[in-house]
């Protein structure tokens, strides 16, 4: 029973609701080439940013794209920006992926993986939620259907703050 409780707690904490447990840290700085120009965290001051790290070879990443499109569409007016950072070593692999799986959000490229290092990624895909003041307030590893509801809830809550 204790095990089950522990498990439930684990799931709840991990499925990134903006928990009080998540320490508030300033978003690591970066400057990355994107499809249209460059992106830096400073550009998104005053917005809620959902940073998603992905790669063409990662199966759950592919699964997450349609949902990310929906999320961007739904919360655009409330100030949500989705920034998907691609970590493919070779950009053409990412381009090929994007031809097949459309992304209606900002896609930036970091073949060297420097941002992945500074965000201390624990798995693929990984997502980070950044509040309007530029603080990382939530993170989530992986993409599973069962996580979708709480992920969206986290985004919606933060947008209302």
């Amino acid at each position: 029973m204790k095990q089950i409780l522990k498990y439930i707690t684990f799931v709840v904490v991990c499925a990134f609701s903006i928990s009080a447990l998540a320490e508030k840290t300033k978003v690591p700085d970066f400057k990355l080439p994107a499809i249209n120009g460059e992106v830096t965290p400073a550009q998104f001051k005053g917005k809620v940013v959902y940073v998603d790290f992905w790669a063409s070879w990662c199966k759950p990443c592919k699964k997450s794209f349609p949902w990310l499109n929906q999320l961007q569409q739904k919360y655009k007016d409330q100030g949500l920006v989705i920034l998907a950072i691609n970590l493919d070593k070779e950009k053409h692999l990412a381009d090929r992926f994007l031809e097949k799986v459309p992304a209606n959000f900002i896609v930036a490229f970091d073949p060297a993986g420097d941002t992945a290092t500074s965000f201390k990624l624990k798995g693929m895909p990984s997502s980070y939620l950044i509040d309007r003041a530029g603080y990382v307030v939530g993170k989530h590893t992986g993409f599973r259907e069962k996580d979708i509801a709480s992920l969206e809830q986290g985004v919606a809550k933060l947008l209302q703050q």
Binding site: W57, K59, K62, L93, R96, F97, K100, V101
Partner: peptide, 12 residues
């Protein structure tokens, strides 16, 4: 790799 990628992609 493109064929492999295709396989991986479509299997999803």
């Amino acid at each position: 790799t493109c064929a492999l990628l295709q396989t991986a992609g479509q299997s999803a």
